[in-house]
Design a protein around this nucleic acid. Sequence first.
DNA 1: TTAATTTATAAACAGTGTTCAGTAATTAAA
DNA 2: TTTAATTACTGAACACTGTTTATAAATTAA
Lengths: 205, 205
Amino acid sequence: MGVIERKEREKEEMRKSILDAARKLFLEHGYEKTSIRNIAEAIEYSPGTIYLYYKDKNEIIFALHNESFGVMMAYFQAIVSIEDPFERLVAMGRKYLDFAFENPELYELMFLMKSPIETLECRSEIWEHGHLATGMLKMIIADCIKEGYFKNTDIEAMCMIIWSSVHGLATLHVSKRTSMYPEDERAGRIWAGFEMMVKMMRNGL
Amino acid sequence: MGVIERKEREKEEMRKSILDAARKLFLEHGYEKTSIRNIAEAIEYSPGTIYLYYKDKNEIIFALHNESFGVMMAYFQAIVSIEDPFERLVAMGRKYLDFAFENPELYELMFLMKSPIETLECRSEIWEHGHLATGMLKMIIADCIKEGYFKNTDIEAMCMIIWSSVHGLATLHVSKRTSMYPEDERAGRIWAGFEMMVKMMRNGL
DNA sequence: TTAATTTATAAACAGTGTTCAGTAATTAAA
DNA sequence: TTTAATTACTGAACACTGTTTATAAATTAA
């Protein structure tokens, strides 16, 4: 009797439809203005039902957090074929910023919001996707060193500052701190900062 | 009759006492867990009274946002006497990170939270303090160029990437994205990243 | 002392995340 | 096929949130 298999499948479908509704509402109106009641209404169930599939709102946010790493990785797909490791590194930075610019809400979820991280901090599986992404970066840095770039540099420290730099640029944009500049200048200033970083990495190490 | 002067003074005192209570609760329990009712209770007034002195919660947050820039500037006070402009720049970065590490809630308020910026985006006075701080950074960069550092570099782009880099490091810490590393390693990794940046700036330009 | 004005309050509104007793639907057993 | 057991779902309730407003109290001016 494949009834438990079907039930399992139905349960998974329900979890997915909740997540689909949550993602849609979240991207449409932002996290703060999306409530459990909104999500419930969207899938035409009562609010209580959500809690039969997700422990709380944090678990929904965290599910989207994980998903988003997949989206980001898809951006990186295009750079793996680049031969020169330094050019690959630069291209990865560019793609990182592209992702942040084109998906500010997802970026916020992944790297800015405290709520899902704070509550799930104890569970080590939270960092699974994070380690995957930084692992990719470290590999490229290692390749750079092999090819003669970045002589005598600590990979961990290099990973830290490269990530931080693009993360800083992305964050200024996502949390609207570039609004101090006219709208038509904002993106340009970010990219000019990025190019300066590339220049420093090229000549400074 | 100095009654209107006294009333004005009393009004200002009330605004201050509200802000004091808000700051205390905010630093104690975080922004998200501090409500208007909490603040009202702390100063022993009814919730509605708060709204006679501040338009809404955002205006309270924004008042703290402005205050915090003063606190950060106090951190920078110690570096103005440093002769060599490059060393002054490095010291400023160090102080910036010190501030972020020692006042994570204030840092969040100033550079991460969207709520006060988003709603007050139209009013240009919001950026007053921001321009003051970046102005200071740009001055130091200009001094560096005068002294022979950073040849042929655009000050604006340089300002952008320097700020972004330390901001990125600070943000990873404040929004708990360094929790993927063991607690006793976190600060060290941030500082190692910073030193790498300094190294690149010293040699790369 | 009275009138006008300012200041503060309590209650209400519309919303939030979350829990839980009770009901409806489905599955298993007789 | 009927009954028992299990599962799925609901709607109301709880304790909150930011904010508004009619009402009442305190203060000032006449």
